[in-house]
């Protein structure tokens, strides 16, 4: 994976496959603490203890179609490369929470990448069956994208309409630019 936004897309696709109806993606950039934190929390079907212990094993997958599962293990490795840490918590029937921490200015820390595209792709393909809450902050400046609020505002018009998606993408890009400026 080239950047973290692709890792995030991959992990959230897992959430959707686990039947999540709500996925929260949080990115916290703190240059003062030299820390980048990525959290993904879902209300999918979760994992039992036995599955959870194997979740980071690249040669384990719950899927039947192939016997390797690289998604989580690759994100865990990306945190290691940047002297960060990786944590996964899950409860069967409740959901799963993944936390990836990185040393912000580490030379091997992957760039965040195109989060606008990741969010729009998720909303376009799964926006009707799930809600996405994306919080992004940098040094105290923050931005919130919440499809529950947007759906209420749209009042019946579907969130996966091309015109809506284009507008939302522009909004995310503008907001991301705003929180990146002046820091």
């Amino acid at each position: 994976m080239r950047d973290l936004s692709l890792h995030i897309l991959d992990i959230v696709e897992n959430s959707i496959a686990a039947g999540a109806k709500k996925v929260e993606i949080t990115i916290e950039e703190d240059t003062n603490k030299n820390l980048l934190v990525v959290k993904i929390k879902d209300n999918g079907k979760g994992m039992d203890k036995k599955t959870l212990t194997k979740a980071l094993d690249p040669f384990f997958s719950t899927k039947k179609i192939r016997r390797i599962g690289l998604g989580l293990s690759m994100l865990a490795r990306a945190t290691k490369e940047a002297e960060g840490s990786f944590d996964i918590k899950s409860k069967k029937g409740r959901g799963t929470r993944v936390t990836a921490k990185f040393v912000y200015d580490h030379i091997d820390r992957k760039p965040i990448g195109n989060m606008a595209e990741t969010i729009i792709v998720l909303v376009a393909s799964n926006g009707l069956k799930a809600d996405f809450i994306y919080k992004h902050s940098k040094n105290g400046k923050s931005f919130l994208f919440d499809t529950r609020y947007l759906k209420r505002k749209l009042n019946g018009v579907l969130i996966n309409q091309p015109e809506v998606l284009e507008l939302l993408k522009k909004r995310i890009l503008r907001e991301l630019k705003r929180i990146q400026e002046g820091t």
Binding site: K153, L154, L167, K170, R174
Partner: peptide, 11 residues
Amino acid sequence: KLKIGDLEKIR
């Protein structure tokens, strides 16, 4: 500059 109110127009 796009505002959330634009969503209503699109709607």
